[in-house]
């Protein structure tokens, strides 16, 4: 699909799945895009767990080969894939179409500015129960699409997971649903490595 076709489909409600890794996504992505990191092994399973089957989807991979492969994998699995973005981010920007950033903060900033954020953990409940940032709540990645509307974003939400893959997905869903959200880079791996406090149980 050309950038203009992608934009038109977005306005009809289609979701762009950005298949890149979390950092390039945070730095710059198509307005409204959702971050779903690609791999051939379990992309289909993850999309199945996160999104409704009838959601019209457009793939954005860099390089383009990734978008093509993802489109094939997901449409073979029965998803409503409209196509992939031709020419990638470069072509999109050349058309003057909007790109946005996802704000990020690292675990040190999170710890220092705790009161300024609603901390949300994007992992599965069993992981959250085992240990999470004190005072954080859970919005598990598999529930996020359906529950994001109810999220409280004053103060803005800081989303954390094990590393960054599920947190960036949940943050992108929150933003798409009109919420103020930021990504905690480094995730619980960095938090634990720094020996910052941990709370156990379901909070």
């Amino acid at each position: 699909m050309t950038p203009a076709e992608v934009r038109a489909a977005q306005q009809e409600g289609a979701a762009v799945l950005d298949l890149r890794t979390p950092h390039p996504f945070a730095a710059e992505h198509l307005e409204g895009a959702l971050s779903v990191q690609f791999n051939r092994a379990d992309l289909v399973d993850r999309v199945e767990l996160v999104f409704p089957e009838d959601l019209p989807m457009i793939m954005h991979g860099e390089p383009e080969a990734i978008g093509k492969v993802a489109a094939k994998l997901l449409s073979d699995a029965g998803f409503n894939v409209l196509g992939h973005l031709e020419g990638g981010l470069k072509a999109w920007k050349e058309e003057g179409l909007p790109v946005v950033q996802l704000p990020t903060l690292d675990v040190d900033e999170l710890k220092d500015r705790m009161g300024e954020f609603t901390v949300v953990d994007a992992r599965d409940p069993f992981e959250f129960k085992y240990g999470h940032v004190p005072g954080s709540g859970i919005l598990s990645w598999t529930e996020a699409w359906y529950e994001a509307d109810k999220a409280e974003d004053d103060p803005p939400i800081a989303v954390i997971c094990g590393d960054e893959i599920r947190s960036v997905l949940v943050a992108s869903i929150l933003v798409r649903k009109g919420k103020k959200a930021e990504l905690v880079t480094g995730g619980m791996v960095d938090w634990v490595e720094r020996d910052y406090p941990i709370e156990k149980g379901m909070g």
Partner: peptide
């Protein structure tokens, strides 16, 4: 190579 790297979560 693009797909192998992507499968490993690497750019």
């Amino acid at each position: 190579y693009v797909l192998e790297a992507a499968d490993l979560g690497l750019a």
